[in-house]
């Protein structure tokens, strides 16, 4: 049986809002370690990988592995019914055909209970090995979101160039071009404002902004985004959770 209690419903709300436009049907695999999701978008360009570690929950038990096949659009509708500050408990039997969500308002005795029917979802699981990346950058997630939104007004593609002392984001379109250059900086008072670059090799990669627009929906999950890039392989965009992560693997675009 699964019983996982979040101190605040807002975390799961944010997670679901962050991925529901990338993938619709996905299996939430629950184990003693927490809840994981892996799913690929319909165009098979973007892979979502989520781990909500058991330490995120104020109470968590899951005796044996349980798979919850969830339609995220329906899940999002139910989860919006709860208040952000409510306790939220997910409950499921061992071979469930539904999952129960219990919201408890902390300021009153109100308890709201919803159940969502589960689906049989047949998805392949991709094996993702740890890779050495040419470059790893860490920067404020909100800045990355703004840069991508600004440049998406010009082009469908975002070019990212990384050298040891700068990160350059570029977009070239029919109406004009744009670029934003960032330099590494350490902010001691506000570490979340820092920008770091770790470089093994200089990087020049191009990505579809349509996918990046979905990735930046994870911005509210973490102050910082970690971007790991190698030339000609999928980039990893990561928002860290208190325990776990939301990762997006995005296949690059390139000239043949």
């Amino acid at each position: 049986m699964l019983e996982g209690k979040f101190e605040e419903a807002s975390l799961l709300k944010k997670v679901v809002e962050s991925i529901k436009d990338s993938v619709q049907l996905c299996n939430f695999v629950c184990s003693e370690h927490g809840i994981t999701v892996q799913a690929v978008d319909d165009s098979r360009v973007l892979l979502v990988s989520l781990l909500i570690g058991n330490e995120v929950f104020s109470d968590y038990r899951c005796d044996r592995n349980i798979t919850l096949g969830v339609d995220l659009k329906s899940f999002a509708k139910i989860i919006r019914c709860g208040g952000n500050d409510d306790y939220l408990t997910l409950i499921a039997e061992d071979s469930p055909d539904s999952v129960t969500l219990v919201f408890e308002d902390k300021n009153s005795d109100r308890i709201s209970e919803y159940s969502l029917k589960l689906m049989e979802i047949d998805n392949e699981f991709l094996k993702i090995d740890d890779m050495d990346y040419d470059s790893v950058i860490k920067m404020p997630s909100i800045d990355f979101q703004k840069i991508c939104r600004d440049l998406s007004t010009l082009s469908e593609s975002l070019q990212i160039l990384i050298t040891k002392d700068s990160i350059k984001f570029m977009a070239e379109g029919e109406t004009g071009n744009g670029s934003v250059i960032l330099k590494p900086r350490t902010d001691i008072d506000k570490p979340e404002q820092s920008i770091t670059v770790k470089l093994n090799n200089a990087v020049n990669s191009t990505f579809g902004l349509k996918y990046i627009a979905d990735i930046v929906k994870g911005t509210s999950l973490s102050n910082q985004i970690v971007i790991k890039i190698s030339n000609r392989t999928p980039a990893l965009f990561e928002y860290k959770l208190q325990s776990g992560y939301l990762r997006f693997y995005l296949a690059p675009k390139f000239e043949d």
């Binding site: 392949e124 991709l126 392989t233 995005l250 296949a251 675009k253």
Partner: peptide, 14 residues
């Protein structure tokens, strides 16, 4: 314009 690669070109099904 550049070609969009698929994620399956890089990761294998386990």
């Amino acid at each position: 314009s550049p070609m969009q690669k698929k994620i399956y070109n890089y990761f294998v099904t386990s």
